[in-house]
Design a protein around this nucleic acid. Structure first.
Length: 338
RNA sequence: UGGGGCGUCGCCAAGUGGUAAGGCAUCGGCUUUUGGUGCCGACAUUCGGGGGUUCGAAUCCCUCCGCCCCAG
């Protein structure tokens, strides 16, 4: 239980279904950041409050060290390498559906449940009924074995329904605003977050078309493909990042919205993960980022890599980001963009 | 110091007598359990400085400062 509405209602529904429920708060991050207080203490209090409301046992699992190593360090290393990682996917893979699952089973649980908007049946991950809120994108790196021990009670409902049901039950967190930003860390800008761990090194912002130096930045690490803001380069049309060179610490930009590096149809995936069996070569659907529409794509293999040919070009397909693959409503896995 | 041009928000840029468009950037908010994108809102009492003409000037005149171009 994170202290939000979703996990609160999840617990409530399980209780109503007659399960023997124990609420668990995962303590993964407690550090305040400049201009932003880490919400962990309030979240924990809210979670506990709901557990008391429901009359269930409540525990705190502490994964702070592991979260730092498996999620935060991974994230920082990726950024240092010039890529753009997705920490929340790593959090699900390494913490929620591994460490937490193991700890829960060891603690005597038969199953774990979370407030994710997704459905699972016999270890198969399906999109949520509420396709607008579907969170399978963040779950593609979970194993089928883990999912076999997992319940997602909210997968059958829409977010508005969840809010309503939470309110009907008088849950303390019924009206609490949805959390955003990096899972557990809070609503911090990635830039402010990275600033805590990497040194700012001034570099040049270069116009890809003319080669002119348009300005300077405090580190190429802070920029990602397709990014518009934060360049502090004005005059005429908006500039978008179309590349960077980590060795030279240079960021390349353009005003050309049709720049070919901004629109991809051929994508290679590394670190491929399948929830169950690897799919056969053929046509599937993919999404390049959370909440992006599903796009038809042809899947092929190249040794350990997966080659995807998208039927529609996608904007800012970025190295380090995840491309998740679907077979109809089933999320079968995915990989990381090279 | 002959000729011509220019100087309007951090940047680009309208406006040539009637009381400062717009875009970019920036900031704030919304959307979003990553990054990013997108959307909405805010943002020059003031037009290089000083003087003058006028009911009224960024717009006309004088002057000073700065920059650019062509000549020498």
């Amino acid at each position: 239980m994170s202290g939000g509405v979703d996990s609160s209602l999840t617990a409530a529904l399980l209780v109503e279904q007659g399960h023997d429920v124990t609420g668990v708060y995962m303590k993964n991050w407690t550090k305040d950041l400049p201009g932003m207080k880490c919400p962990w203490a309030d979240d924990l209090a809210d979670a506990k409050r709901v557990a008391v409301q429901l009359g269930i046992d409540f525990k705190v699992f502490d994964f702070e060290n592991e979260y730092k190593h498996k999620v935060v360090d991974y994230m920082i290393d990726e950024y240092k390498a010039g890529r753009t990682p997705n920490p929340d996917i790593m959090c699900n893979q390494e913490v929620k559906f591994k460490l937490f699952l193991e700890a829960a089973l060891e603690d005597g649980a038969d199953m774990i449940a979370t407030g994710h908007y997704a459905r699972v049946k016999d270890g198969v991950l399906k999109m949520a009924v509420d396709t607008n809120k579907d969170q399978t994108y963040f779950l593609y790196r979970v194993t089928g074995a883990a999912l076999a021990k997992t319940m997602f009670p909210l997968g059958e409902y829409t977010k508005p329904q969840v809010r309503k049901m939470a309110e009907e039950r008088g849950l303390f967190t019924a009206a609490k605003k949805d959390s955003q930003g990096i899972c557990f860390v809070g609503k911090v800008g990635i830039r402010d977050f990275l600033n805590q761990y990497v040194e700012q090194v001034p570099g040049r912002i270069i116009d890809k078309q003319s080669g002119n130096v348009l300005g300077h930045h405090d580190g190429a690490i802070f920029y990602t493909l397709g990014q518009r803001h934060g360049l502090d380069v004005g005059g005429g049309l908006p500039y978008y990042v179309v590349g960077k060179n980590m060795d030279k610490n240079e960021v390349y930009v353009t005003t050309d919205l049709n720049d070919k590096t901004l629109w991809q149809t051929n994508v290679q995936l590394d670190a491929v993960h399948w929830i169950n069996d690897a799919p056969v070569v053929g046509k599937y659907h993919i999404r390049v980022r959370h909440r992006a529409p599903l796009i038809a794509a042809d899947l092929a293999y190249d040794n350990d890599r997966v080659i995807l040919t998208l039927h529609d070009e996608q904007r800012a397909v970025t190295s380090g980001q995840s491309m998740v693959i679907y077979d109809d409503m089933v999320c079968i896995g995915g990989g990381i963009v090279i």
